[in-house]
Design a binder for these strands. Structure first.
Lengths: 333, 333
DNA sequence: GCTATAAATGAAAGCGCTTACATTAATACT
DNA sequence: AGTATTAATGTAAGCGCTTTCATTTATAGC
């Protein structure tokens, strides 16, 4: 594989001139440029981006750390990020932290060691302190789906509390008063915030959350189906169910059907996130829209503006959830 | 940020000795090793993996090129790959080719330029010739979901034709004789192979595929719903529908319901892939199991064995599809 | 104690590129 | 034609590590 040495020899110019042609950042006479480009083509020269990165302390790539690689939520997030960077001629290096402290730290170390120009971090386990320390370092980063006031300028987030509020308020407005709740893992901030919103909506109707109508799920379908079974065994009746994400809602609906419950006649169900298949469940799922793909796109634009000085990129940092009313909620009788 | 120079100075040893301690590949006296490790800890030394890669022509990472970052199929594939490497202490660099020729080539170039020790390629647009040329180069790679006889030892694939055959044969065994088909994009090999299997099953029952009962979809939900609408408008009656993947099956089922068709009483539906939510559709989707997560895991093991000499890894290269019979297929009346 | 051998460690030269500063060539003005 | 200025290009020294070959130190045997 040809190197810059061979190109410079064949073109009859210096290494610096070849480098100038590659990077196109300082003037090179047109005839000289032509000689260099011809030599590159003839040798099928491919710049070694490892050497470029060492020499320049740049890598022209962005590290992305997400919690998982599967699931519609992460798929949409990654797609939003990657599409924006692909249009800008950048590459992303993706790794997963699995909501585990050591794995998240290892992932960040890995991305930093690859000399990423910036990081987009969807992390849940590392502490605010850890991220503040990271912010004091040299690697620019933007947080997705997390808000830390001390570094608010680097956060792209959604008002999860408001989303939790809107979900439950919708059921209350439809006349439901006995509302069960299947939460995400409550050590996760967004799971807690959604539940707080649920509680706030209930309080507006002089209601309090009944612990017997609460189940802590895992954001997976099985969490939803197990959650519904557990709630039904509580002996308490409820006419509506809020699930803290669409995957658990989908699981709950399937379990309900197996138990002979008619959705939404006998049980109204709300989801959260508005992932792609929410439209294809039966009945079509009422949910809270969480524009994660757009948020991923904004994180990418933040990087393009802050790190690559592409000033035309406007960045929205705080997103609002929106009620999506479909067929899985019916007025209480 | 401390470099190997500062570590060697603080420890009072040479650069080579520090490097030997880092790589632990040649003998270092225990007392010397202790001095170096203490100096590293005191300086909070982090090796620069860019410099390591340039000097050693290794990167300790594997490049993964997939068609998409979203969707349950790709999520499962990536998860299978990443989990195996994470257990082995390796990192993956993931990029997407979007089934586009230029983007796939660019992605391969990107991963090669990052000095990946090996590549795992799920590519659809680049030609067999291109891959044969790549195989002649220096970068080891394994193909996922593609079989090229000349490099069969580097291919992990599924017998898609058999899967297409099993899907349609199941319906034929249930008495269906008028079977519609919603294909994937027919320029894709797996889409064609699945259809060929469909045709082979029909031929065993002295039937031929009716062009009016064929719709070329896009492997997306919308492809399924549009496909069903189109097929119904053909005027031809059919009692069963094969969709070339679960996402289109899910879309078709939703469209059927909107059109007042009862699944499976009035229309049996088969999917393909057995992605996670196939269990949660209503009715639960009969499908063909495509163990893409296990295949991803095998691709990872291939790399561990071939590139990192971890001989304990056994690698299965050819996978067989399996019929998963759930509730969306009923015997013909 | 001397000699031969083995172990441990150091010196130095890259790996492939970037870039600051120096040099040369080209151009403009008098 | 000479001089000053500007443009273009070359030289050389890293960037942070690895690794080959040389040197030094340690050990064993006589």
């Amino acid at each position: 594989m040809a190197t810059i040495y061979e190109v410079s020899k064949l073109a009859g110019v210096s290494l610096a001139t070849v480098s100038r042609v590659m990077n196109n950042n300082t003037p090179v006479k047109e005839s000289t440029r032509r000689k260099v480009l011809d030599a590159m083509a003839q040798l099928d020269y491919r710049p070694n981006s490892i050497a470029q990165s060492l020499a320049s302390n740049r890598s022209n790539s962005i590290g992305v750390l997400v919690s998982e690689l599967h699931g519609p939520f992460y798929g949409a997030m990654l797609t939003g990020i990657e599409a924006e960077f692909r249009a800008a001629g950048k590459h992303v290096i993706i790794t997963a932290g699995h909501s585990d402290l050591a794995t998240e730290q290892d992932g960040i170390d890995f991305l930093q060691s690859r000399n990423c120009d910036a990081l987009i971090l969807h992390v849940e386990a590392v502490s605010d302190d850890y991220l503040l320390q990271l912010a004091a370092g040299d690697t620019p980063f933007v947080l997705l789906n997390r808000h830390i006031p001390a570094i608010a300028d680097r956060c792209i987030s959604l008002n999860n509390e408001l989303g939790g509020y809107l979900a439950t308020r919708h059921l209350l407005q439809q006349g439901h008063r006995q509302i069960a709740y299947i939460a995400g893992p409550m050590w996760k901030t967004d799971a807690r915030d959604r539940y707080h919103g649920h509680q706030r909506a209930l309080a507006e109707y002089q209601l309090t959350a009944d612990p017997a109508l609460f189940f802590e799920g895992d954001f997976r379908e099985t969490g939803g189906s197990k959650g519904l079974e557990s709630l039904l065994q509580s002996g308490k009746t409820f006419s509506a169910l809020v699930c803290a994400n669409d995957e658990m809602a989908s699981g709950a609906i399937t379990a309900a059907r197996e138990l002979g419950l008619n959705i939404p006649q006998q049980l109204s169900v709300m989801g959260y996130d508005n992932v792609n298949f929410a439209y294809y469940t039966y009945p079509k799922l009422s949910t809270i829209d969480y524009p994660i793909s757009a948020m991923g796109q904004m994180a990418a634009r933040w990087v393009l503006r802050e790190v690559y000085q592409q000033e035309s990129n406007e960045v929205q940092q705080l997103f609002e959830p929106v009620l999506i009313s479909r067929d899985s909620v019916l007025a209480a009788t």
